[in-house]
Amino acid sequence: MKKQILLIIVMSIVCSGCTNLGVQPWERDLLAKDEMSLSSSPLDSALDDHIYFSKEASSGGKGFGGGGCGCN
């Protein structure tokens, strides 16, 4: 139950400011750079996901975490 409350609080904080946030289309110079992409190194992420999926009890979060190999 604590987790659900925490989730709602985080979502509320994130959402409450939405209307005041953001940029105009001509202000996207920095955001448009490759290194500002939320998945700027997809191959690194794929390789890391495979390692940590094999060695730890958690997976996913950023993307889908299920299945794929018999390494766990």
Partner: peptide, 28 residues
Amino acid sequence: DKTTTDVLLGFTQVINRRMIMQFNYSYS
């Protein structure tokens, strides 16, 4: 055998010219 079903909800917000944030909830 085994089956894995994942659902992923994502929310991405540009904060300002220098910052972008993402929040994901996943159920597997």
